[in-house]
Amino acid sequence: MAESQSSGAKRHPRPLSPHLQVYKPQLTSFTSILHRFTGIGLSAGVLYLLCWLLAAAHGAESFDRLQDFNGSVIGRLLLFAWSVAFFYHLLNGIRHLAWDAGFGFELPTAYKSGYAVIIGTAILTVAAWVIGYFQMGAF
């Protein structure tokens, strides 16, 4: 069925709707695509969490090696990216759940909640890292 459709499209090219590049970037579309990107990134984060558990199950030596990597510059950058992605996906996910329940779909509200998600992500990420460094005795 898919084949007959695509060969039909070749014989009779259908008009295409304008694609991404002709639209002005909007906060609503930006937050939407970012939800997917962060979701994909967080899936990789779950794999990394599994590595952490496997290392802990393997013993102190493996665990210490992984913790050393977590403390390295690349490790910290990765953890920082995952923390941003997590708080964004969490807050924007709540926004999506509200939409699914029928709330906040008016354009001005959608813009306000979009800005709230971005600001909330920044606040929660900074808070998490401040607490984390406090735990490590950095202050």
Binding site: L53, A56, A60, F63, D64, Q67, G71, A128, I131, G132, Y133, Q135, M136, G137
Partner: peptide, 15 residues
């Protein structure tokens, strides 16, 4: 976050 920088003994006890 609360386990940040904790060593193996602390983390495995938590787990």
């Amino acid at each position: 976050v609360c386990n940040a920088g904790a060593d193996y003994a602390v983390v495995s006890q938590w787990l």
